[in-house]
Structures are given as structure tokens and as C-alpha cells.
Simulated scan of single mutants.
Amino acid sequence: MTETASKWETRRAETARRLQWCALELTRDRGFDGWTMDDLAEAAEVSRRTVFNYFDAKADVVLGPVHDISEERIAEFVAGGPTGHLFEDLVAVAAEALAEKSTDIDLVQLRRDVFRGDRRLVAIAHDRFESVVQEAVAFILQREGADYGEQRARLLVGLLMVIFESAVERVEPDQSRPFAALINDAVADARVVLQS
């Protein structure tokens, strides 16, 4: 990557972060339905056009990006990789998707706090979450076969989400550790809990 392209990517990431941060603050202060994209542009000190160059809708900017997983990684997972252990592989795929988008833990924490105070936003997030769960369940069933069962696959994805939430909660006391290490700690704790 050239230095110019790198600067452009850095500036683009900073603008996206500022837009998300301002949208979350507006939601915290006014509620999800209490502000417009024009209000967001003003708060972030950008044009309305810039807002729409980054995000298609208000929900997208508040909820943040959907973490895409490459087709190669999905194919590897469905084929039984990378380790051959379903839960380990699911954690690895999710951690990689989060790492590729350089998860901003401050935004994740602010988003979590804002969600707790806005029922409308919780409903919107639930709809997005459900589509992610359905996609993950489909990949698990492709890998394990229909006999594995949809309910078991949904439970597995739900456990992964709880582990992610636990990792987010671990950031506050120890912000020096990488998020991937916190996910690993939460997985280890989950193993202990499930074996007791």
C-alpha cells in the first residue's frame, strides 16, 4: 500500500469513527428517534453528503459495521477448519472478523451503554443480530450436518455472543491487553463454568 493510500485509509477510518461516536452520543442524549442525519453531520462537522458516503442509514451508523467474513474463511470453516474443533473454529472466525475491522473497544462500550437506554435501538439491533445468527447457524449446519440441529447451532452462536460481551466487560479494568486476549480469557472461563 502506498503512503498516500495509507493516509487516505487512516483518514477514512477516523471519519467513520467520528460519525459513529457522534451518532451514539446523539442517541444517548436524545434517543434514537430524537435526531436526524443532518444533526449528525452538524455534530461531526461534516457535510450531509459525507455522512451518506459512509453510512446508508441511521441504524447503520449507530450499530456500526457488520463484520464481513471472507469466502475463503467461511469455506475453511465449513470444511472443518481451522482446528477441527467446532467451537474453537467459531471463536477463531469471529475473532478474525473483529480484528480485521480493528474493533474500537471505546465505541463498543459506548454502543453497549447506549443500547441499555434505548428500547427502539435494542429492537433494531435484535433484527440485525437475528440475521447474523441465521447465517452462522447455516454455516454450522453445513459443516456439521442437519442432524446437529438448528437449536444446538443457535445455542452455540448465543454462547459466542455471551463470550464477546464478557470480553467487552473485561476491558475496563485492564485496557492494556489486546481484545483477542480478553476473548481467550472469556472462552477459558466459559469452559470452566460449563464443566462445573
Rank of each mutant, 00 (worst) to 15 (best):
M1N: 01
S6L: 09
E9M: 09
E9A: 12
E9H: 13
T10F: 13
R11Y: 11
R11G: 09
R12P: 00
E14W: 02
T15D: 07
A16L: 02
R17G: 04
L19G: 14
W21Y: 15
C22V: 03
L24P: 10
T27I: 09
R28K: 09
R30A: 13
D33T: 11
W35N: 12
T36Q: 06
T36M: 10
T36I: 08
D38Y: 01
L40G: 08
L40A: 07
A41Y: 09
A44N: 12
E45W: 01
S47C: 11
S47T: 14
V51H: 08
N53E: 10
Y54L: 05
D56S: 12
D56L: 10
A57M: 00
A57D: 03
A59Y: 03
D60P: 00
V61W: 07
P65D: 11
V66D: 07
H67V: 05
S70W: 01
S70C: 01
E72K: 14
R73V: 06
R73M: 08
E76Q: 10
E76H: 01
V78R: 14
V78D: 10
A79Q: 02
A79V: 01
G80S: 13
G81H: 13
P82Y: 00
T83F: 11
T83G: 15
G84I: 11
G84P: 11
L86V: 15
D89V: 05
V91D: 02
V91G: 10
V93Y: 04
V93H: 00
E96C: 00
A97W: 02
A99I: 00
A99R: 06
K101L: 03
K101D: 04
S102V: 02
S102T: 14
T103H: 03
T103G: 06
I105S: 02
L107V: 00
V108H: 00
V108C: 01
Q109W: 05
Q109M: 13
L110K: 06
L110E: 04
R112K: 08
R112A: 13
F115V: 01
D118E: 00
R120D: 10
L121I: 03
A125W: 02
A125N: 11
R128V: 12
S131I: 15
V132Q: 12
V133K: 13
Q134L: 08
Q134H: 08
V137C: 06
V137P: 01
A138M: 03
F139W: 14
F139Y: 12
R143M: 09
E144D: 12
A146P: 07
G149T: 13
Q151L: 15
R154W: 04
L155Q: 15
L156W: 02
G158H: 04
L160V: 00
E165T: 15
S166P: 07
V168D: 09
V168C: 15
R170L: 10
V171G: 01
P173I: 09
P173E: 12
D174I: 06
D174Y: 12
D174M: 03
D174A: 11
Q175S: 10
S176Q: 12
R177Y: 07
F179K: 07
A181N: 10
I183G: 02
A186F: 11
V187F: 09
D189F: 15
A190P: 03
A190Y: 04
V192L: 13
V192I: 14
